[in-house]
């Protein structure tokens, strides 16, 4: 048994390859090849037609001094750092509320909160374009009826980013609530019972049992949100076009503009590699945290 050659092993397990080949084929052509080709492209200048010229690391050097990229990166980081705590904070509170033993209509609440996630981002974008309109938007109607002045959500450089954050929060709270609710249901009931016997208050139970027990799930959702945030594209594309004056331009929209509007394919490839590096650093933590029970 021990002395099988690799060839024999391959032959014996040939069905492994038969079963894996369809996936592997499409994975190689549409995933591995683009990853490598993208890097090759990023070392060239290419306008979409004709011959590409090798430029070495020039594209990457340019990214460092490209003020539009810096703006886009700053905007993206702003949207990430403001929306993520809002989303996860609301989601955790909501999940704890929905996890109470005697909540009535739980099924309906869950569906209601989940609905924003089901809808396409484009549809969400067009709805909020109307809702947040500076002259006739419903949100401004509410703001005015409680005595404040209308806010130019989509047309001011300060508010455009915040508008995107509002939409992100609205869309992603329900999704994260569902994940957190599943996590909460995994916390052993007797922990809470023991705390109750010791006279623990609701708040104490939340901070000393719920939060520590939920740490892995919160971390997981945090990393999902981080990765998602660096991919923001549709919301600004639909609602503000990245404006006014690039105030809501995201990294991916800049990538899109460079590649598909200005046809600077090489530069856009370099941008995509920088984006990849940023996301890789973020997801590295997830792999670290998630490993241990991978079962390889």
């Amino acid at each position: 048994m021990e002395d099988k050659t690799t060839l024999q092993k391959i032959k014996e397990n040939r069905h492994f390859y038969y079963f894996l080949v369809p996936f592997l084929l499409f994975f190689s052509v549409f995933m591995l090849f683009p990853i490598i080709f993208s890097f090759y492209m990023s070392l060239h200048r290419w306008g979409g037609l004709g011959q590409a010229t090798f430029t070495g690391l020039k594209n990457y050097m340019r990214i460092f001094t490209d003020s539009t990229f810096h703006t886009a990166l700053k905007n993206t980081i702003f949207m990430w750092l403001t929306s993520t705590p809002l989303i996860l904070g609301f989601a955790l509170i909501l999940a704890v509320m929905l996890n109470q033993k005697k909540v009535k209509f739980l099924k309906y609440f869950r569906v209601g909160y989940f609905m924003p996630f089901v809808t396409s981002t484009v549809v969400v974008g067009v709805i909020f374009t109307i809702l947040l309109d500076s002259s006739f938007g419903l949100v401004n109607f509410f703001i005015e009826s409680v005595g404040f002045e209308k806010i130019p959500f989509l047309t001011s450089t300060t508010w455009s980013k915040i508008s995107i954050v509002i939409v992100l929060t609205w869309r992603w709270v329900g999704y994260n609530t569902i994940i957190m609710l599943a996590g909460l249901q995994n916390i052993p009931e007797d922990l809470y019972e023991a705390a109750e016997i010791d006279g623990g208050t609701t708040l104490q139970k939340f901070f000393y049992i719920t939060v520590p027990m939920m740490r892995p799930i919160i971390l997981f959702t945090f990393i999902l949100s981080t990765i998602g945030s660096f991919q923001i594209f549709t919301e600004p594309y639909i609602m503000t076009g990245g404006g006014p004056m690039q105030s809501s331009l995201s990294v991916v929209q800049y990538l899109y503009n460079s590649g598909f509007q200005q046809f600077r394919m090489g530069y856009a490839s370099a941008l995509s590699y920088v984006l990849f590096a940023i996301i890789f650093v973020a997801s590295y933590f997830q792999i670290k945290i998630g490993s241990g029970e991978e079962g390889i």
Binding site: F30, M31, F33, P34, I35, F37, S38, M41, I227, F230, Q231, F233, V252, L255, Y256, G259, M265, A268, S269, S272, Y273, L275, F276, I279, F280, A282, S283, Q286
Partner: peptide, 11 residues
Amino acid sequence: MIPMQVLAIPL
């Protein structure tokens, strides 16, 4: 974890 935007240009 590679988002599709990274693959968009070569694809």
